[in-house]
Design a protein around this nucleic acid. Structure first.
Lengths: 343, 343
DNA sequence: AATTACCCCGAAAACGTTACCGGTAATGAT
DNA sequence: ATCATTACCGGTAACGTTTTCGGGGTAATT
């Protein structure tokens, strides 16, 4: 129960208490085999008794292997990075790695630079063996420790990445709506400079083209992946002189905004408006009605990123530098066949 | 563009490149005033040019102040810790502190021990100046760096903490339902050994007592704060021979489970069943119908925790060791006055 | 009995950084 | 002209760990 007043416990204190050298304690800590069983047990007991844990900083500085993985996510709050985080956490929990999460603040200004700086500061010569970055803006990180990206913003990168079949997913979503007889389908996009946005928009356009339906620019709006932007875009779409009978939102959060806009306009889903989202975040199944959406295996993506990262750390080569995770359509209750009688 | 192959950049490399000593570079890095302006600028330029960032590990080991705060959360996924995280992140973003998040895995077995170990490993003599722990199980942390808890599990702790007015909130929720004429009110509790659960249950009981309504043990069920447990408890409540006309769930996630159970049973909310939650997580406003709930300023709690922690780091005394954040009733569309005609 | 082999363990050198102490040159005061 | 003061900067000792090296025992082999 006695507490050191100033300094904290060091390996020296343990060594003194156990009557052995510092090296021996270190050997015990790292499960080296070069040690007598009885000494091992005795030192182990002293360590447990004193409640000693080694300093991450000192350990990281000396040894090459730190047994810590890093995860860098944008301003925490969006479901996507959080789902990735869960997947990473789960994948790591069975290994002997620890996880440190870094969030870059929400300052839009120096977003990239700031993130990159923090990233390097973490990695460069510090505390982690490798890092996973979620939706990175930067296309290059100057470090020698491995990096894996999940859903990178831009297409051309230096680092390995895992990303979903965005185009195929969007095609499938469009196929579903078209099969139900919808012809005027609104699209709510994300930022145009983002890879995932681009692919989904392309899927929307190609889906229409395949069905022989001309593209009406009025039906394409731009959001920013937030529910709020989805609301605004949906309002805009619904106030058109010839409003769409269905809306395909580039992610589920914006689809939730569509729900709200429909509610405002007195439209019920799916009777008056069909809605399809993208991602299949947990909220999609809890909404009323359940949101039909394109499932993206987000947690799985985190898991795959961990596997890639571990390979890189071990020095093994990667078979694929870009791994594509498959999407699939999840049908719930937010879509309905269009009445054959057109008004 | 040239990249070192093996080792990463050190302060030595920078010093050599800038033609100054290591100490001078360090002075520049730490904005010490004991330096000539021109030298400062020159070294700064070299640092930027080489893309050097100092090693967190080495810096942490040597200097007392690390300018890094730690946040420890249970298995990431639950909305509560995530909201705290957002608040902490926001509070920190204006300061010159960085944030490192640690999640203890979801292994139930050594939950406390594991968490404590990780915690100490982070703090003890490592990388952070102080740590915020969300819903800690442990009542004591053997460390000399400061700790602040948000919503600690148990009532008697060693560390300062910030916690909501759980009893008052529950009383207000009950007052609302009772005012609407409800007499049979079901309660879905959390784990009985948790402080917040206890307080809310007490509020439920005291609310009934105040209205002169006897407590029916049948109406009190125990969940575990997950939506799934809320579903199960609600099923149980609704299958009673005399089912409740209203359900008060000890958190919003379980209230979402109630929604699902009502849906299954063909009951509509609020016509056939009134529901009140607790927490006011983002999903509460997005659900259909909007969930009436007790607002807990979760992000604010994170912010307050940061303020307390900073005081402790600065060595200033705390005015209060326990700060209570106020709850308030948020009325949405999940409650309705009970028809005067009783069946 | 002498040599070899092996098993443990301790001493000491790093790792990259900051804190502390001095030292030099320039400036100002007597 | 000498001394004290200041401004700036470099050398060096830590910080707490892991790793390498080697040495002292004891057991096995010649």
């Amino acid at each position: 129960m006695m507490r050191r007043s100033k300094r904290s416990l060091t390996i020296q204190d343990v060594a003194k208490a156990a009557g052995v050298s510092v090296s021996t304690v270190s050997r015990v800590l790292n499960n080296k085999d070069d040690i007598a069983p009885e000494t091992y047990e005795r030192v182990k007991a002293v360590i447990a008794d004193m409640g000693y844990t080694s300093s991450l900083a000192a350990r990281s500085m000396r040894s090459l292997r730190k047994n810590v993985l890093g995860l860098i996510i944008p301003d925490a709050g969006a479901p996507f990075p959080i789902e990735v985080m869960k997947g990473v956490n789960r994948a790591i929990s069975t290994l002997e790695y620890d996880l440190i999460i870094y969030t870059c603040g929400d300052t839009r200004k120096h977003f990239t630079a700031d993130r990159e700086k923090k990233f390097v500061s973490l990695l460069n010569n510090s505390v982690t063996d490798g890092v996973i970055v979620v939706t990175p803006e930067a296309t290059h990180f100057n470090t020698n420790a491995p990096v894996v990206a999940v859903d990178p913003h831009y297409e051309i990168n230096e680092y390995p990445s895992v990303i979903s079949t965005n185009w195929e997913g969007a095609m499938e979503a469009m196929g579903h709506l078209l099969n139900l007889g919808h012809q005027r389908i609104g699209f709510i996009s994300g930022r145009y400079d983002l890879q995932s946005t681009n692919r989904r928009l392309l899927g929307y356009q190609d889906g229409l083209a395949k069905a022989g339906i001309p593209i009406d620019p009025e039906l394409i709006t731009q959001g920013d992946f937030s529910a709020d932007s989805g609301l605004k875009c949906a309002r805009q779409l619904l106030s058109l002189t010839k409003p769409p009978t269905a809306i395909f939102a580039a992610n589920d959060e914006m689809a939730m905004g569509v729900y709200q806009a429909a509610h405002e306009a007195g439209l019920s889903i799916p009777e008056d408006l069909s809605v399809v989202g993208f991602d299949n975040i947990p909220e999609a199944s809890q909404s009323e009605p359940g949101l039909t959406t394109i499932h993206q295996p987000i947690q799985e993506m985190g898991k795959i990123a961990v596997q890639m990262l571990l390979k890189l750390i071990e020095g093994e080569p990667l078979e694929e530098n870009i791994i594509k995770t498959p999407t699939c359509l999840v049908i719930r209750d937010s879509c309905q066949a269009l009445e054959p009688v057109r008004q």
